[in-house]
Design a protein around this nucleic acid. Structure first.
Lengths: 153, 153
DNA sequence: AAAAATTAAATTGTACACAATTCAATTTTG
DNA sequence: CAAAATTGAATTGTGTACAATTTAATTTTT
């Protein structure tokens, strides 16, 4: 009862106890920790997420489909994808069947990066012991299921 | 063992199973849900976080102290605080004792907003039932403790 | 089939984040 | 005390996020 009330009550909300703030902080903290590792791949963290989508595919995929997976819109993706194109990691091509769509395809450079990228999670997780990894994994499951709660409705 | 291995293994990392991606998505999703509620206060979500810090204080507080609480630097805070100043919510003043510091103080408008803001969490949480609130609370505790793991080291 | 509605990207504009640098004020050292 | 180091904000530059609008292409209606 106590802690539910602190969240719902009429008191001023306490910063450190707010789920939203913890998510906001944790997300930025994790992104920060990815950065030095991703620097070797010359990718930002959002660019890395786009690459994960593309590596899962191997087929060309539309901008909106990428957006659906990452919950990002064209306002974010279009300039990001143009940067990946400039780095010769992907190509952007209008779809012949539906000229509204732009298909994103890996270039050979982008495909080859997959091998390097496979080492990324390990580099970040290696500093945790088994007990800590287990906690991360539990948090992941909790978060995955709560995210379902947040999104539906 | 299985799921720990999927995170550490040499396979291509799976997007939906990555804690980092879940944090990134959940954080943005929650921010999105705050937005309509905060619009009534004419605040963005990061501005709201700064206000939470200021409401907890009631004393003037330096930019760097705000930054310490929110894990944000002056590059983010300076322009944000200038916007709050323009809206007559706060004042910015060089500290007399140490002229390097800029003290942030609530204006009367900013102080009065506290009452309205007290209703914000309730407006977001009211759509969850008791069981769901309990899960949010559990996630909060998990996240709080894991964040400690991530930050120290 | 023509008009209306919908969809997919791109564009525009605002607001973060954050690395890196600058500048001034204060502290620490030699 | 003067030089060196540190600290606190501000600035600069890059890269997201995302609302809102625009434009072109496709689909649905009438």
């Amino acid at each position: 009862m106590k802690s539910v009330n602190t969240a719902m009550g009429t008191n001023a909300p306490r910063l450190d106890d707010q789920l939203c703030f913890l998510l906001y902080t944790a997300s930025r903290e994790v992104t920060r920790q990815y950065q030095p590792v991703l620097k070797a791949l010359d990718l930002t963290y959002p660019q890395y997420l786009v690459m994960l989508v593309l590596w899962e595919q191997s087929k060309p995929i539309s901008v909106s489909e990428i957006g659906k997976r990452l919950h990002l819109d064209s306002g974010t993706l279009t300039p990001l994808l143009k940067r990946l194109e400039q780095k010769a990691i992907i190509t952007r091509r209008r779809n012949d069947r539906d000229e509204r769509q732009v298909d994103i395809q890996l270039q050979s450079k982008g495909l080859e990066m997959k091998r390097h990228a496979a080492e990324v999670p390990g580099k970040l997780l290696c500093r945790f012991d088994d007990a800590q990894l287990k906690r991360l994994q539990e948090l992941r499951e909790e978060l995955k299921s709560v995210l379902g709660l947040l999104i539906n409705e």
